[in-house]
Design a protein around this nucleic acid. Structure first.
Length: 837
DNA sequence: CGGGAATGTGTTTTT
DNA sequence: CACATTCCCG
């Protein structure tokens, strides 16, 4: 069972601690999850009922992992491991009446929130260009995360510091917004916490019952809790004080969404009898990596002193790569990954690429595709943000919660039924006046004289559809899903031969798969509510599969809690990492958070760490020069001390040459320095003897395929002489493209499409893609090609009859033995190649 | 009144 | 470059 010989003294202390508050300060790679799971097992072993233990995490992934590991240690015991949000959602299903919610409430996503705010703004005649929905929501969110109601917020604004016009507007908007939410029997993400927090504070009985029920509470990633979460935990643990929190102040990266570093820093003051355990020994990374991480993080002031040490090997030195632009960065990253994989015999899944913002993944994906390196992207929300998916889920929401006005507005005319926005607006007004749900108003539309006959009929038909669906005996989400498609005719207008439509069909199929999976996993009691809750609380990065055999791409935020043998962090540049926004802020806190983000990235690496940056980068069409991140210096990669030559200086004096080809914007500082020809450029600072093992090396990366462009891939731009086709470098292409008018660009793209139809150049719109196109449309990064045999866990074996798109957008159509054809997003689907690899 | 096309504007990170 | 609003036509 839980033998303890394999734990170090600190770990053992944490595992054996039983009653009273415990703070585990756990550095990266220090075996924190292990300690938590072992501690839970120990509690159960000592006679505590598993049902009286509550473990809270931030991500579903962490929750799942913890649950599995506890189950592995203590077979048969069911501990409730949940995310904060899911835990709160379930409490609200049960006790929600206390705050005015019916059990079938809807959970809104951020775009629903935006829509709702817009509604409020137009109702109050507030100009959304001056008060952006995002900013208003941000302010409301902040207020909610402090457990402040709309009324309290308004009072504070009126009482206190007057003159802040923005807050006065927020006060009005907040109240109205909250009214609408409640009337729609809906909550936003913040409400999940806020309602529970207020409910516990105001309702002694519920608080007491739950406190009794959960005698032992564990909170993971405590440094990321906001005030509301802190209060919830404190109230639940109030009577017994058996609260164990674990975390690392140096890995707090969610300040922007209200996390308060103070919660963990002050835990000992809040619970004076706290036992503090420090886990500082790192089992994950090499000495080189630990030392660099430490050197970086000591630059932060707001932290608890903590060192990172390890008995692991010294390890390979950290490499820093420098490229002309993002395209070459992508090329270089791909080349390096391939080289390391070959030389060290590593599978693709050993590699991870991290970046500060999602937008940076594009050029990487294209380059990996060109190099035929399989990859997966842990993109924020991609799937559940798709219009088709949201439409269909909105139908479900409306069936489950007829008061859901946002769902109603979304689908009342989707697919188009001739119900225009004026009709909807009038109907909503009328419904609000009558105090009834929009759906009921639609049912009784014939009672409302203000509508045209056509509109009334259309609304009646719509209401009838929802009625029928609601009456359908519930036998799982999947049957209802099929019925929904049938009744609404959703998707019937989509054309299999149109690229975009095929994509939509694949998404619909994928959602059906998700429904099927839900039904399967909840065979005992599938509910529509449960499925909806999953859909709104699940994030795409929960589906990151470490054993996928692919290179993993994700943001630094998403990387927390993971580890990879080889980590590449790209775009380590001022303005991106640290991000511009933190630089513009006065407070040093924001820079410190960026530094922690970098720290998180660095400490994900087990054996090798590579950092890349560029000379210039295209940011939304505009070319920007990049400067090396200050963190590069702080990582102390050169081993140099203050006063010695800094890496920046050298780079500033020797920018690479490739950029000089852009005649429009950039100077060409090296035009007469033949030694600097070639690209990217190698800069080896200081000579071998000056370079300790972790030297800061600007390593040359072979240009790979970029430079060689097969003749048939040459293109001529419309404004070039046709008889002299030119080879296009990314930067020229970008510049040329920027110089084109919208119409010219469209003409060019149309031409490319025509060519693609003729079997020539595939349908490509970016220069990078043009350069790297491998000849046939289906030759992407993926393992899937036309003709291949594949297996689907539910549908069986079939063969691929069509493929389109690339990278994470790749779609394949599979024909199954019964003759049916289905489309899948390869990145999303569980399809597996059968037979030859 | 409804639907699609043009125009303009603003972008971190995510439960 | 994607979205939202506005504009314009059927």
């Amino acid at each position: 069972m839980s033998a303890t010989g394999d734990l170090n003294p600190a770990q053992l202390e944490a595992v054996e601690h039983r009653d009273g508050p415990l703070l585990v300060l756990a550095g990266p790679g220090s075996g924190k999850t292990r300690v938590i799971t072992r501690r839970i097992a120990r509690l159960i072993e000592s006679g505590i009922y598993p049902s009286r233990i509550l473990a809270l995490t931030f991500t579903n992934k962490a929750a799942r992992e913890m649950e599995e590991r506890v189950a592995g240690l203590m077979p048969g015991s069911r501990v409730w491991v949940s995310t904060f949000h899911r835990f709160c959602a379930q409490l609200l299903r049960r006790y929600g009446q206390a705050v005015g919610l019916q059990p079938n409430f809807s959970i809104l996503d951020s775009s629903d929130q935006g829509a709702l705010i817009r509604e409020v703004l137009s109702e109050q005649n507030i100009d959304s260009s001056h008060f952006s929905p995002g900013k208003l929501l941000g302010r409301i969110s902040k207020s909610k995360s402090r457990l402040q109601s709309a009324e309290e917020f308004a009072r504070e604004v009126l009482d206190g510091r007057q003159g802040n016009y923005f807050d006065q507007v927020v006060a009005r908007v907040y109240q109205n917004y909250q009214d609408l939410l409640l009337r729609a029997n809906s909550v936003d993400f913040d409400d999940l916490l806020c309602h529970v927090g207020r409910m516990l504070a105001e309702n002694d009985e519920i608080r007491h019952d739950l406190g009794e029920r959960y005698r032992y509470i564990l909170v993971d990633e405590y440094q990321d809790t906001n005030f509301a979460q802190y209060q919830i935990v404190k109230m639940l643990a109030g009577s017994h004080r058996n609260l164990c929190v674990t975390g690392d102040p140096d890995q707090s990266i969610y300040g922007w969404r209200g996390a308060e570093l103070g919660n963990i820093l002050q835990f000992e003051q809040d619970f004076p009898e706290t036992r503090v355990v420090r886990l500082e020994r790192n089992y994950r990374s090499t000495k080189v990596i630990c030392r660099a991480a430490d050197a970086l993080i000591v630059n932060n002031v707001r932290r608890k002193a903590k060192t990172l040490f390890t008995d692991n090997d010294e390890g390979a030195r950290i490499e820093s790569l420098f490229f002309d632009d993002q395209h070459l960065e992508g090329e270089g990253v791909s080349t390096v990954i391939r080289q390391i994989a070959q030389k060290e015999g590593r599978p693709w899944s050993d590699f991870a690429i991290f970046y500060r913002v999602n937008a940076l993944s594009r050029p990487l994906e294209l380059a990996l595709g060109r190099h035929r390196i399989p990859y997966q992207v842990a993109a924020g929300l991609a799937f559940y943000e798709r219009a088709e998916v949201k439409d269909l889920l909105a139908y479900f929401r409306l069936i489950s919660n007829p008061a859901d006005r946002l769902a109603f507005q979304r689908v009342v005319n989707t697919p188009v039924r001739g119900i225009g926005k004026t009709t909807v607006a009038r109907l909503m007004d009328w419904a609000d006046q009558q105090g009834i749900a929009p759906l009921d108003a639609a049912r009784q539309a014939d009672q409302f004289p203000g509508l045209t006959r056509r509109a009334t009929l259309a609304l009646g038909r719509f209401a009838e559809i929802i009625n029928r669906l609601s009456m359908t005996p519930f036998a799982g989400v999947t049957p209802l899903f099929d019925e929904l498609l049938k009744q609404t005719g959703y998707g019937t207008g989509l054309d299999k031969h149109d690229e975009a439509d095929l994509q939509k069909l694949a998404n619909i199929e994928e959602l059906r798969n998700a429904a099927a999976q839900y039904d399967q996993e909840h065979a005992a009691d599938p509910t529509l509510q449960g499925f909806l809750e999953n859909s709104s609380l699940v994030a795409d990065l929960d589906s990151v599969d470490e054993a996928s055999g692919k290179v993993t791409l994700m943001t630094l935020h998403a990387a927390k809690g993971l580890e990879f043998p080889v980590v590449l962090i790209v775009a380590v540049e001022e303005g991106l990492l640290p991000h511009d926004r933190s630089l513009r802020s006065e407070s040093p806190n924001e820079i410190e958070e960026e530094r922690r983000l970098m720290f998180v990235g660095v400490t994900r690496a087990r054996e090798r760490l590579l950092l890349t940056r560029t000379w210039s980068r295209d940011m939304r069409g505009q070319r920007m020069l990049s400067a090396p991140s200050r963190f590069l210096e702080e990582l102390n990669l050169s081993g140099r001390r203050d006063g010695e030559r800094k890496s920046h200086d050298s780079l500033a004096r020797h920018p690479p040459t490739g950029a000089g080809n852009d005649r429009n914007e950039l100077p060409d500082p090296n035009v007469d320095d033949p030694a600097m020809a070639g690209n990217p450029v190698a800069i080896d600072e200081g000579g071998p003897e000056a370079i300790p093992s972790e030297a800061f090396v600007m390593k040359a990366v072979k240009p790979g395929r970029t430079a060689r462009i097969p003749p048939e891939k040459q293109v001529s731009l419309p404004n070039e002489p046709v008889e002299a086709p030119v080879t296009v470098r990314p930067e020229d292409r970008a510049a040329a493209s920027a110089a084109l008018s919208r119409r010219e660009r469209e003409a060019l793209e149309a031409k490319q499409r025509r060519q693609s139809k003729l079997g020539g150049i595939p349908n490509l719109t970016t220069g990078a893609a043009l350069l790297g196109a491998g000849g046939t449309a289906e030759s992407t990064s993926s393992n899937f090609r036309v003709g291949m045999t594949v297996r689907h866990p539910q549908l069986g074996v079939g063969s691929i009859v069509a493929a389109s798109g690339e990278g994470k957008r790749q779609t394949v159509t599979v024909q199954f033995p019964d003759g049916s054809e289905r489309s899948f997003l390869t990145q999303k689907s569980p399809l597996q190649p059968v037979g030859l690899r």
